[in-house]
Amino acid sequence: MTTNATVTAASGRPLRTPKASSGPPIELRHVHRWFGSTHAVNDVSFIVEKGEVFGYIGPNGAGKTTSMRILSTLDEPSSGDASVDGFSVIDDPDRVRSRLGFMPDYFGAYQNVNVWEYLDFFARAYGLRGTERRRAIESTMDFTGLDELARKPIDGLSKGMKQRLCLGRTMIHDPSVMVLDEPAAGLDPRARIELREMISRLAEAGKAILISSHILTELAEICDRVAIIERGQLIAVGTVDEISGCVEEEITVRLRVTNDRASHDQTAVIPWLSRHAHVKTVVATKEGVTFHLVTEQPQRDATLAGLLAELIGAGFGVTEFTSRGKSLEDVFLHVTKGRVQ
């Protein structure tokens, strides 16, 4: 693995800096896509800023891949437009392509080609010449950890190594925008962590990254913002906290108290909590007491602090008081109403 310095100049060139008038790196404006009578993408609009990792979540068939293909100039919207660095994907796809790296959810292998030859071909295809091309290939192989497999035929690579090679191919021309469709699909936990690290470093290098994945916990960790799409329509856009804040009505709290006084031990705290106006579903577990605190999002912190103060005031020796909000998976299931398409 290399340092971040390698990332910032994968091909040895300075990173492409968008002009002031160029607009955001990624912008979708009222994009619609019809396939016959199926409305695959329905009025989707969002913006991804420079250096931002933007997660794109949705059930199967929700329209994620279609939107990503439109953005990558592989499909055309039925109406609306999308732009990359200010260039329309309909009118200037050639300019979009030189600025965009697309990693589809399939590998796209050539027969009888080794890792180095594969990257060399795509470097040539993106117009890199001579020393610039050599440096780009070396940096990419170094970044993706493929340098020791340079002469290995790509047919013989493991799934994880193929994904690394795909990412290398996507970044070989140092694009300012990267579109990654299910990059972590089928990877083992270690490979996932490594991929996540690589994506974070690419974002740190100033690239705008649009990423879709089914593994929501991973997206929650690396994404600055997420969009949830269902049946072709965007139903929520924002940071994970913003979205979960909108949907949260109750939070889970875990409590542990000391058992040194019988009148104020764990068994005594359960009826005390059950009488509280904001508390419901109090359950005793081996690790303490778990209960749900019902409160509106703006007053959540104040209610929690108040409850803790009341507990201490009532004489309970509180050793642990932990609140847990909804995870991205909970939010996703809540927003999409748990429907599977």
Partner: peptide, 14 residues
Amino acid sequence: EDNTRDLLEVSSLS
């Protein structure tokens, strides 16, 4: 067939 057509299309090759 090998899904490499898309990769060629999104490259800078004319």
